[in-house]
Write a protein that binds this DNA or RNA. Structure first.
Lengths: 119, 119
DNA sequence: GCGTATAGTTACAAAAAGAAACCTAGCAAG
DNA sequence: CTTGCTAGGTTTCTTTTTGTAACTATACGC
């Protein structure tokens, strides 16, 4: 079964500033890490939890639901026992790749700088 | 008077993932907005507070101190009455511009999409 | 029957954020 | 002389968010 959520967002309740608009969807650390780990493809809940690392079950569940409501993430539930739930990015979610790339690039450059200064 | 803070960061206490490294410095909504509003140039505390909008004095103070400790922001105190404190970005802070730009670009595209869907 | 596994919920504790008052020091108005 | 204003900051208190740990449901293998 596949649950989908349309972008039920009214333009008028988005902030005027585009940066804030983006932050409304991925202004949280966990949301960015979900994005990072789903970018290569589908993952199950537990798998995602382990790959993110340090996130509690409760918070990950909550963030995934929000991201689903925002149309960034798709949730596929398989009626098996034990339950299997797979998460993947929607096209909208995948469209955030450039943002993720810029975060990664800056982080890489920064780490290099710190390593050089630490000598 | 000018207070400066070197990047006193040891490479080993940075996360392995560059994305997480970046998030450690600007993983918070307010930090990104400070960056956005200081990118054009120096601002006084109150000015910054108003331009960000919706941030409490306590939290803005705390975030600015953190960003100063991280070497992103410079703090200039003028010994006047009433006090004047000016904030500006360091070169490291300004180097985050590409990240900010990607957030802005995505937000702009998203708003366009939402506006189109809302008809 | 009993333990295992998975995604999720619930109840409680800890941490962060927000709201509002107070502090400082000098200057100006009354 | 007293009162009020200024701007950045701190303190206190309340609310919201986050984290921790225990518990649920259900089929499978033993």
């Amino acid at each position: 079964m596949t649950e989908t959520t349309a972008l039920g967002v009214s333009p008028q309740d988005l902030p005027a500033c585009p940066v804030e608009t983006t932050l409304r969807l991925i202004g949280n650390k966990w949301e960015v890490l979900v994005l990072r780990d789903l970018m290569p493809g589908t993952k199950r809940f537990g798998e995602l939890r382990r790959s993110i690392g340090g996130v509690s079950q409760k918070v990950l569940t909550a963030k995934l639901r929000e991201m689903q409501a925002d149309g960034l993430v798709e949730r596929h539930v398989y009626a098996e026992v034990p339950p299997r739930v797979e998460y993947s990015l929607t096209p909208l979610g995948r469209s955030l790749k450039p943002v993720l790339d810029s975060l990664e690039q800056w982080g890489t450059a920064y780490k290099k700088k710190v390593a050089a200064a630490g000598r």
